[in-house]
């Protein structure tokens, strides 16, 4: 464990908590892409299948449980509890264009052709593009609530910090995982446009508005 990975996990956890609280407190999932949350639930499910078979540490196991539980709770709130507030007309990104290519790629490019490894690889590839429906929805509605932009910022920063974690691990542990690194780079690049808007607008107290 290193400071970058720890801060990254904290950032990821806070993004998940921010979103849960936003929906629960406001009893509304307006502006939130249910499709992205569905993709995140798939990412965590396919990545943490070794949750019960491969104990790494109490921290690792408890974080995985929190991630899986909160992602399902978020999907449940969007598609069931508060589905009246779900803005389906603007959440129209074709997720099959994300799931199919990443699934095929995980069969072609992986470290080991075994079910667990292919599912792990699929979850890494899918996570790198899972935010696209949400970013697409924000660009379609032309703006996002401030709390949603904080959620997106925390979510984007988490994988950016993981990039530094991988530099650290390459330097000091002679370890690197090209699949995770390349996917993490793609994931971070997808946020660049949003990071720019967040830093130039939201941090100045303005509302986040994208040129529609």
């Amino acid at each position: 464990m290193n400071i970058f990975r720890f801060l990254g996990d904290i950032s990821h956890l806070s993004a998940i908590i921010i979103l849960l609280l936003k929906i629960w407190k406001s009893r509304s999932c307006a502006g939130i892409s249910g499709k992205s949350q569905l993709l995140f639930a798939i990412v965590f499910t396919t990545r943490y299948l070794d949750l019960f078979t491969n104990f790494i540490s109490f921290y690792n196991t408890s974080m995985k449980v929190v991630y899986v539980a909160s992602s399902y709770a978020t999907v449940w709130m969007i598609y069931s509890k508060f589905k009246a507030t779900y803005d389906g007309n603007h959440d129209t990104f074709r997720v099959e264009f994300l799931i199919v290519p990443t699934a095929i790629l995980s069969f072609l490019v992986n470290h080991d052709f075994t079910p667990l490894e292919i599912l792990w690889t699929f979850s890494i590839y899918l996570e790198s593009v899972a935010i696209l429906p949400q970013l697409f929805m924000v660009s379609k509605t032309g703006e996002a609530e401030t709390i949603t932009s904080h959620y997106l910022f925390a979510l984007g920063i988490y994988r950016t910090l993981y990039l530094f974690n991988w530099i650290w691990r390459y330097q000091f542990e002679e370890f690197f995982d090209l699949i995770a690194i390349v996917a993490g780079l793609v994931q971070t690049v997808l946020y660049c446009d949003f990071f720019y808007l967040y830093i130039t607008k939201v941090l100045k107290g303005k509302k986040l508005s994208l040129p529609a």
Partner: peptide
């Protein structure tokens, strides 16, 4: 040979 380091990561 890329070590699959990322398995102990979240």
């Amino acid at each position: 040979e890329a070590n699959t380091a990322a398995k102990d990561e979240l």
